[in-house]
Design a binder for these strands. Structure first.
Lengths: 186, 186
DNA sequence: GATGTGATGTCACTTGATGACATGAACCGT
DNA sequence: ACGGTTCATGTCATCAAGTGACATCACATC
């Protein structure tokens, strides 16, 4: 949600997004991205670990916000209540510009390698959430299950929101999805 | 669970497993795998799409078994009952030799690229399960959530079983994990 | 003005992955 | 037995991702 004009990292992000849309992820070469950003390919790899990572720059912000929400949740809240609070915060963060999200998601959906990267980001996020829950004194197994259930809701709700089948506020959709998960598993 | 002596594909699988253990995934070159299997690197890529895929050869068997279980589940069963039936079949299949599973899992855990591949395999499996549930007349959203919940249980239970913290039958652990998920989300 | 620090460029190299073509063995119908 | 087809593999060439080593330039600090 931050604007990026000056640094090479920001220009590389922009260039990559544009090229991935114009000719697709696989058909885009790192050299091309670098050239459009006015730097060398070598410099690209100084800013991003690999060709996929350039699309996942903001993920640390989300993780930080969710972790903060977990820490700040009211004392004594049960696992799923804590997770629900975190999801609400996450929905507020992710649910800002739907067009950009849809854009990005189209790129990712079109390429398995990018899906892999997204999945592992979510898995790592789940690990951190579980750790946050354990830090609140929640038993390991419950922590893992609640965290993973939260990631599941986040994923499904986001997908629904970004696909436009569901027009409302992402936070609302997340709450509905969580309720639906409760109903289905019950 | 099938034995593989003769074909090049089987020899490549064996060679890859050995080398990934001996020196790690990244440190192993496709040329080395091919050499140990008595073929060329080019031939490796004729049998496996990439260097990771060689570790995920059996995944189609699992998917097939789960899908069959979904089709054959008693008529009128609710989403989670169908998923539970599939998980029971899956537990029976996966829970056979724990040593080999532990072995494989150690390799995967040690390398992010392999984790990515495993995650996308599970995601695809989830997609197929959801489709199977929809084919039974279950509403799309419930189908997706039940399928994804099933994958979640499969993943967590398998992890627990293979880590040895839980000694019993994988099918039992799956059932317990499912019950725990119900409790947590309730 | 010297010196150090950080970001970038240049060069060389390894490795994963793919396309094009050749070869050789097994198989099949006559 | 023969000629032809098919399939698996080898060979060669090539591209692109990624990394290490070293040079360079700008800028800040003393």
């Amino acid at each position: 949600m931050v604007r990026w004009e000056p640094g090479a990292a920001g220009r590389l992000r922009e260039a990559a997004m544009e090229l991935y849309v114009e000719r697709g992820f696989e058909q885009t070469t790192v050299a091309e991205i670098a050239q459009r950003a006015g730097v060398t390919a070598r410099t690209f790899f100084r800013h991003f670990a690999d060709k996929r990572e350039v699309l996942f720059a903001g993920s640390e912000d989300l993780a930080g916000a969710l972790m903060r929400a977990i820490v700040e949740a009211p004392a004594g809240a049960g696992p799923m209540a804590v997770v629900a609070a975190a999801l609400d915060v996450g929905g507020g963060l992710l649910g800002q510009d739907r067009e950009r999200s849809r854009h990005r998601q189209l790129i990712i959906r079109a390429n398995p390698e990018l899906q892999e990267r997204e999945l592992i980001k979510l898995a790592r996020l789940g690990d951190r959430l579980a750790e946050g829950l354990r830090a609140r004194g929640i038993a390991p197994r419950e922590a893992v299950l609640a965290a993973e259930a939260g990631i599941l809701v986040l994923r499904v709700a986001f997908e629904s929101w970004v696909s436009g089948t569901d027009q409302g506020d992402l936070r609302v959709i997340m709450a509905e999805t969580l309720a639906a998960l409760r109903t289905v598993t019950a």
